[in-house]
Write a protein that binds this DNA or RNA. Structure first.
Lengths: 195, 195, 195, 195
DNA sequence: TGTTAAGCGAGACGGTACGTCGCGTCTTACG
DNA sequence: CGTAAGACGCGACGTACCGTCTCGCTTAACA
């Protein structure tokens, strides 16, 4: 995706790159993903279509790149020593993100495209989804090693449960993720409630 | 969507309807949802495009209709008296469905379209998703009334958890749903294990 | 190029056809053949690009069709009984046509395209050029039968000489064809001058 | 079009120039003028596009230059003292050239471009066509001064007749120029036969 | 012997048009 | 009035080249 410096020929224009990512994000917010077109992005950004096709294989990849640009999308792996605190921090961070309508709209579009376009699906899973799973996975595995996970609940399934609800609310239920859900999730994912 | 009987003119052709639904399902399996087109369905089924547009608002609606045609998609609400048995029956039925690749492919396409096309999304949620939620919801609410649900777990969230994992595995993880997951889900959704 | 009447489906739109031919001729006059585009013709005529591609294989074919539309392009084969009179009539008609700048511009473009695009060249020769050759050819062959052609001049070459000068003036010399040239040509093509 | 000698900087690369002219000629023969592109010439010749644009205004000018490179394209003005001998020599030389398919293909392309691109047309006429006219013109004018031209045939028209047939056969008739035509032309252009 | 300036291959850039695909609408003739 | 057929206006696709613009490098003439 980037040009080595020691080569002949004009360098990739960083200005165009930024303009394209910005235009794509704006247009998605304005007209929706279904009406988003490469031609529209080119026109809005002042770039030529070829410049977009040169660097991204599809409009979804432009959006994926644009999403990565937004700073707060990167969720750190919390490690405060305590399982529940880590979990709470992770969920809070993730769900804060989920409360921004523009980001949610983007996530819905990307997940949809991933279903329809297998190659993009691969990229989406490998880059975006995997990172998120890894973050929560680290927390949960640490907990399991300390025996803080409920018995009969593998770390894998625990992670599936969390992301499952999160995505289900975004994709199917259209209900916001709130504090109550966080509490319930923590109840489900910790052994403490057994008494 | 249907023709009143007591009126002049030719009646809707049941033959065309079936051919269209079949062609749509076949083509989705063969070329994928992204490459599915109304023109393609018309050509394969021998119908005119107008006939399709007359009875369905979009290609996704044709597929949704085609899905409803498949017999075993209709999941009954089990009521064997015992919460865990009901739950197990529901999960088994649902997950059996999820093990048929063609059905899974269809579900992925419809869920994707629901993200991209708001009007279809509405129809998809109202007809397809709601029925399923209602089935599981009935079971879980019965359990709650009997105090068989874990404390701090509302019926709503319990249902979200189940469908969340199911859809997450279909849409994001691409891992099959197996017996192990069913057992874990039952563990999470019943209070009994706490002691 | 035409639709049989006894078939299903919408008929070819005669209105579109006319609008396209007119737009093509106008645009050629306004911006020149080099800047003539199918998109431009579509925009000006209010037709879709596909409609143009459906009926004509290239922009040159549209122009060729448009040329055939102009009434006075059709040159009759004169037969007044006398060779020189017939010849004079044919040359006058042909050269009158050659004095209309728009037609000349069109002819130059078509002849150019015929050099560059072999398939169009074939069509241009078979439809347009051949008819003209046939007209003059009839006159000259009649004259030869009566021994009115100069000795050692085959009818073929006689026709080549006439169209040669005509096209050469149009394509290479950019000089108008005038009465003097007609007189000289008649001198060359008749045996009378021999004395 | 050429670099002044007394200045700093790298000199024009003769090697590139030759490679470009050769590539252009080869490609025209291989894919035809319509598919000839500046990018193609650059790729084949190993030159950069900028180098081509620096020295030639269009692909047709490259070909015109390439044509001038071919040795036998330069037709001398014969002067053997006798009109008919000069004429015969000129026609033979010209028509020999016309029997080389590659040269003919080039001439067709250049004449076509001259119709379409006015500026190139000007250059083509001023450099290429004018020289040829001058050569034949000299012969014919000499003959006229000696009274060897048929009466009522101006030198101008005589030259038009010759080049007319030549180009007509190349552009429109696609028939080779043969000895018979030469004989007929000489008959037409000399007064001798009249008696 | 450096400095300066032009030419060079490479290749990204903003554009324009291409020819194709599919949309959703609209006649047709037929049942 | 429903139906298969198919033309229509439309909009976007992804591609090909255009002519221009950096890049880093090479090659000369001049200081």
């Amino acid at each position: 995706m980037s040009t080595q410096p020691g080569r002949p020929g004009r360098k990739r224009s960083e200005e165009s790159r930024r303009a394209i990512l910005a235009a794509a994000a704006e247009l998605t917010a304005e007209v929706g993903y279904a009406s988003l077109t490469i031609e529209g992005i080119a026109a809005r950004s002042g770039a030529g279509k070829q410049t977009i096709y040169r660097w991204w294989p599809s409009k979804a990849d432009v959006l994926l790149d644009s999403l990565a640009t937004k700073a707060d999308v990167h969720i750190p792996i919390p490690d405060e020593g305590a399982y529940e605190a880590d979990l709470r921090a992770f969920l809070a961070a993730t769900f804060t993100l989920g409360s921004r309508p523009q980001v949610v709209q983007l996530l819905r579009a990307l997940m949809a495209e991933a279903q329809i376009n297998a190659e993009f699906g691969e990229r989406f899973r490998e880059t975006f989804l995997r990172q998120r799973r890894a973050a929560l996975g680290a927390i949960v595995e640490r907990a399991e090693a300390r025996g803080e996970l409920p018995p009969d609940l593998t770390p894998e399934t625990a992670v599936d449960l969390v992301f499952g609800v999160l995505w289900y609310r975004i994709l199917a239920a259209h209900r916001p993720v709130d504090q109550a859900l966080i509490d319930e999730l923590i109840t489900v994912l910790t052994a403490r409630r057994q008494r």
